[in-house]
Design a protein around this nucleic acid. Structure first.
Ligand SMILES: [Mn+2]
Ligand SMILES: [Mn+2]
Ligand SMILES: [Zn+2]
Ligand SMILES: [Zn+2]
Lengths: 142, 142
DNA sequence: AAGCGGATTAGATCTAGTCTAAAGATATTA
DNA sequence: TAATATCTTTAGACTAGATCTAATCCGCTT
């Protein structure tokens, strides 16, 4: 997650995010976990690490800032919850429908989109979503 | 969406869903749109079509029943909203980040996952999510 | 007709997320 | 240093999607 020997502060700096104490602890947490925590989980995990109280609004503000700055990305897994992921490598996610566990899947594993993956993953379904920009438009379509 | 010349009633029957009037109008609506409506949008669209009031609880109950029965599937596009899709063919979604419009993309268009698609779709990002069942487990992993 | 189980209802409740208005920090002038 | 501007954080109110509850309704079977 955290690139090479970079400090959390330098990661923020390189993305143009001013390093306040609140942002530091939140980014540090995200950059050092393989989990895909929700805002609530981030709050629980880091609120003890500051001398002052950490408000929910700040957690949400910070997560949105980090997302917009490109430090983390959103993962939409279950309905009704946004999760955050500091792994910016080209990868996808496998979600265990029993436990809810979310596991990173390197993009190169996704060759034929249906075969692939370890035999350890019994795939029930795949959901692929493109986000982009629809050109409006000349004749022929999808 | 709706298979061949089948009636809505027979679609429900073939999936083991008892065809009440509420379920009929909801299923009929979903089976005849290319949209990917939310529960709220379903409620708005069909509530006038019944002689009685249609409660929100029934809409949610019905959507969950239809999903579990395999008549529709969930689409997780934007955070905080579940959308429903009666197109069960193997396909993915393109979401216009400007308008929010959701467009079906046939699976065969998704060959190399990055190239592909019409030039009309400028892809900013792709999110692939597998849902499944994690075998717990012998040695080697992803 | 009585009883049963599933379906539907209105409205309360839950919860993730946003908004608000005030207070705090930090940088930039004079 | 003081004044000011801009940005950040805070507690708590608020919103909105979704679920829960308990009463009622409806179609069957006896
Ligand atoms: Mn969250
Ligand atoms: Mn909805
Ligand atoms: Zn990930
Ligand atoms: Zn679709």
């Amino acid at each position: 997650m955290i690139p090479n020997g970079q400090s959390v502060e330098s990661v923020l700096a390189s993305h143009g995010v001013k390093p306040t104490p609140q942002r530091m602890v939140i980014a540090e947490y995200l950059l050092n976990t393989l989990d895909h925590p929700t805002a609530e989980e981030v709050l629980d995990a880091v609120s003890g690490k500051l001398p002052v109280a950490l408000s929910r609004a700040t957690v949400y503000n910070t997560l949105n800032s980090l997302k917009e700055a490109g430090v983390v990305r959103e993962v939409l897994a279950e309905p009704g919850k946004v999760r955050y992921d500091a792994n910016l490598s080209n990868h996808h996610h496998f979600i265990d429908v029993k436990t809810g566990q979310i596991i990173d899947v390197p993009a190169e594993k996704v060759e034929k989109l249906g075969k692939l993956l370890d035999k350890k993953f019994k795939v029930h379904g795949v959901q692929v979503t493109f986000f982009g920009d629809l050109q409006q438009d000349e004749s022929e379509q999808t």
